[in-house]
Design a protein around this nucleic acid. Structure first.
Lengths: 200, 200, 200, 200
DNA sequence: CATGAATGAGTCTTCATTCAT
DNA sequence: AATGAATGAAGACTCATTCAT
């Protein structure tokens, strides 16, 4: 049944679905809308995907992979000092927001809609969070090992806390009028909080 | 008067809907499920609510009000020193997590499902975020004014960043096996990050 | 069950139903609307009527009786000459239109809505038509017997044809802005057609 | 192309709806009945019509068009004498009754049920009446101009009065056992009334 | 491979009717 | 007698999915 034919078409269906789901929400979006966006028959979608949920799963996977690609571009063990780590966090922040600014629907998909589709997709999302947390933790662990971060840091929890700050920023991008400005202020605030604290 | 109108009926429907929506998701849940949970006819639900969306809106409102009640219990201008503020943040954190621990579905409802129902509900959710941000900002502003927080703090952005840490924790509660432990570690990590920084 | 209690209330329910049915149509009108019009509980309607259809039947009956009362006020055998008959037709026409002008909803009820409720009501309406036809026929028969109408008149059919002219006028009243003027022109046209013909 | 779209499908749905609406009445008839009559799924009906009301509107339109086609087949200005006009009225009457005799449900649909569906359909029906009245008036106007009808004729009102006679006959066809005989007697009675009068 | 007509399970929603108070 | 809360049958409508062409 599925999994045949032109791989470009499969990809273009995902593009359309990504856009439609983000615009109308998964529940309100119909397979016919997705097909209509491409000017193909809705039956055709079923040559590339088992069903609607399968489309959503693929959209989510692709979105998570794109985010993961950015996150994993850096080497967690490469930094040797606080200054280097700070620079790395800034770099990573910029790349990540690039993604969410370029595709402002991404946040809605990843943070709202596709998590509401299904227990399995929700679980997939949770697993991705877990993976991102583990990634952030590995940076912190490197810093503790190298001695430039506090030895008593609760690495696992702090990693999730940091990710929370980042994800919230990504979610905010969906709403804001001036995403560039938000990005800069957000990264600066996060970095300042992490490295300088809020206290005078 | 006829069979006296149970004044708790409306409330009990919201309870049931809260639970069903959290369990199956808004889209998958049916009015029949909600009514079935209470052992009443589904038509009865329509004596108390216009339609399914209206039920969702009421569930969301109630949930947001509960959260707001906790957040607004503290007085933003009462703190005079960094230590007092730190204590206040810890207090607030505990109360907030109490809520999410007591009702582990709350996070799912507020962070996923009910935001996907509707543009209007999504907007309502956004407005609530905004309000919470403003609230956190008022704490920070107080600290800057009183001189115990950095004068160059980007108050508005930092407020949202801090809220991101908090909300992420609330979302995590939905998944964890040991919510008490998560709560304690989370609050400690957030407070440490805010007040001590991560640097050695 | 029904058929108890205050007869004024029964009548007032019929008044309300008459008005509501005419305004919204039988199908779109609810028992709750009827009760609401009177400021009583909808359950109360069921103390006076078996069900909604029963209300419609009573409304129709009353309406037909009112029309019948006007029609039967004249004595079919009283006229002795063409001139007398012509005067009688004019008189009857005026009285009949009085009714439809006073209650412009009457036409809609009798000609559209209540005939569409039910096979039985439709039959009742048909029977009323039959009766009116028989009545008109008795006038014609009198005229033929007395010698002032054509002896070769197809009395039964012509009676129905004449009634058709009259009913169409009643139906028109529902739509017109100036019912008085319509009434006068209509009666004049009908009488002219019957007694003078259209030919030069 | 897929299972080729039957171009008669839409038409056959209208046929079925025409028949079902006439048999059970619009309100009592369900889309499922219509689909059942054709042995198709009820969802299929919604591929051809927006909703139930839309089906009714199409049924009504088609019915009115059929009637209009007959009415408009004659040329109002073609007659030069009373005899010609009389022949024309007879011809038109026959053709019109042909329609109502062939489809005895037509009268019920056009005179009762479909007028009760909706304000818009009622208005459409009224507009059709108006058009028919204008048509009849144009015949009369021609006769007055040519000098074979009374110069003092109230053309507009008389046209409606004449139509009333015709429509009543069409409505009667629905009930009668012997429609052929009714038709002949009706036309004869109408023509006699118009051209000979009832007076001796 | 693509199409899109057809399907029908699944839901929401209405509202006449009942009946405990 | 009156009330109006509760009921649940009934029906309109949607849309993911299938499959003959």
């Amino acid at each position: 049944m599925a999994r045949t034919a032109d791989p470009n078409r499969r990809e273009s269906i995902l593009d359309a679905a990504h856009s439609i789901f983000a615009r109308k929400g998964y529940a309100a979006a119909g397979i016919a809308d997705v097909a209509g966006e491409l000017g193909i028959a809705h039956g055709t979608v079923y040559r590339y995907f088992e069903n609607k949920r399968d489309v959503a799963a693929a959209v989510l996977n692709r979105a998570l992979e794109r985010i993961a690609a950015v996150v994993m571009a850096e080497d967690a063990t490469a930094t040797e000092s606080l200054a280097e780590y700070r620079a790395q966090v800034e770099r990573l922040g910029h790349r990540l927001y690039e993604l969410f600014v370029a595709d402002r629907a991404l946040g809605r998909l990843v943070f709202y809609d596709l998590g509401a589709v299904d227990d399995e997709l929700r679980e997939r999302l949770r697993a991705a969070h877990e993976m991102f947390a583990e990634y952030t933790a590995s940076y912190l662990r490197n810093g503790v090992a190298k001695g430039f971060l506090r030895p008593d840091l609760d690495v696992d929890t702090t990693a999730r806390v940091i990710n929370g700050m980042i994800f919230e920023g990504a979610a905010q991008v969906t709403h804001t009028d001036d995403p560039q400005r938000l990005r800069d202020r957000w990264i600066r605030a996060v970095v300042a909080l992490m490295f300088d604290g809020i206290a005078r």
